Simulated assay, not measured.
Amino acid sequence: MTKRITNKSVEKEMSFLDHLEELRWHLIRATIAVVLMASIAFIAKSFIFDVLLLGPKQADFPTYRLLCKAARFIGMESFCFEELPFRIQSRTMAGQFSAHIWTSITAGFIVAFPYVLYEFWKFISPGLRNEERKTSRGFIIVASFLFFIGVLFGYYVVTPLSINFLGSYKVSEQVFNDFDLSSYISLVRASVLASGLIFELPIIIYFLTKIGVVTPEFLRKYRKFALVIVLIISAVITPPDIASQVIVAVPVVILYEISIYISKAVVRKQKRKAKANVN
């Protein structure tokens, strides 16, 4: 009897260790994918910095041109300018090299995001039932699509609005804006990644509904509180002017409303399945 208990405990311990080993390899493969994409980004330094990162600093950036046309249409010139009144500098010996490394890693993570999700899904999918795996088959595609839409929104909307406001803001004409390279990159990185993660809201609501944490009624009941949270998030990732906050808040509110319909669809399907099992 003692021997049998010992074998069971050893078997359980080995099973747990096997899961840890499997998780380790999934993390290793995901990390390798990020490093490979980061290496490509590191080599493409001119494109990453001159075109992508420093693009929102130029007056001919697409967002500024569009906002300028819209402003002129209503008789304003607030978004029309020839040059943003600030410079970017590096004030530490390793500043530019460090910025190059971390920017490459960020770019590598963004590009490799679908594969990272794939490795995560491969780890958790064996624990799901066959029907759950079938219904969640498009998880990687949908989640990746939403993430990239959020990244583009952060790059073309949040980033230029933030740079235009903060780069033009002055407390005195005697103070000139000289921003450190790391500060500028941090703003772009935070805007892009935060937007990418925020746009994952429908996916999060889907899984929370599946496990019974939230319901459509709950989401409708606390819609007003959610709106306040959305405005707070918009205030955090955008400059403190009302126009920018509204521009960012609108798509997030739309995502919240879509999440309610997704939650409703999940609950409806669960009720239909439960009714079929009873019959």
Rank of each mutant, 00 (worst) to 15 (best):
T215W: 00
V51S: 11
S195T: 09
L27R: 04
S98T: 06
F179K: 01
K122N: 04
W121Q: 02
W121V: 02
F176S: 15
V175K: 07
R133M: 08
T209W: 07
N130R: 13
I211F: 11
V192K: 10
K122A: 03
I149G: 04
K170S: 13
D18P: 01
M76F: 13
D18I: 06
V34F: 03
S78H: 11
I101M: 13
S39H: 03
P62M: 08
F147I: 01
M14E: 15
S263P: 02
S46V: 05
V188K: 09
G167R: 09
L23E: 05
D241I: 11
A107F: 15
S182F: 11
E257I: 07
F123R: 06
I258A: 15
H100P: 03
I205V: 15
F225E: 09
Y64K: 03
S78T: 14
F179C: 03
H100Q: 10
P251A: 02
R87S: 08
F199T: 04
I43D: 05
Y206L: 15
K134G: 00
F109P: 09
V35P: 07
A71M: 04
S186P: 05
A59E: 07
V213K: 04
I247T: 11
L36N: 04
F61G: 04
E13D: 12
S78M: 03
V171S: 13
N277V: 10
I32T: 09
L128V: 01
T106P: 00
F49R: 08
V192N: 11
C80N: 01
P114V: 07
S259Y: 01
L219K: 01
A249Q: 06
D180I: 11
V267Q: 13
I124G: 05
L255H: 05
V267Y: 03
T63A: 12
V236S: 03
I203M: 14
I260E: 01
K45R: 12
W102D: 10
L66R: 11
V230Y: 06
V228Q: 01
F109A: 10
A44I: 02
A265S: 14
G196K: 09
T2E: 15
V214H: 06
V192G: 05
N7C: 03
P251C: 00
V228F: 12
K12M: 12
E22S: 10
I229G: 08
R137S: 02
V151D: 02
M1D: 10
E82K: 14
G75R: 12
I48W: 12
N130M: 08
T106C: 13
L146E: 07
T92Y: 03
L231C: 11
N130F: 01
E257G: 08
P251V: 04
W25T: 05
V236P: 07
L53M: 15
R189H: 15
R65W: 00
S9F: 14
F199V: 00
S9K: 14
K264I: 00
K57I: 12
L227A: 12
N130C: 00
I204G: 13
I110N: 05
Y118P: 02
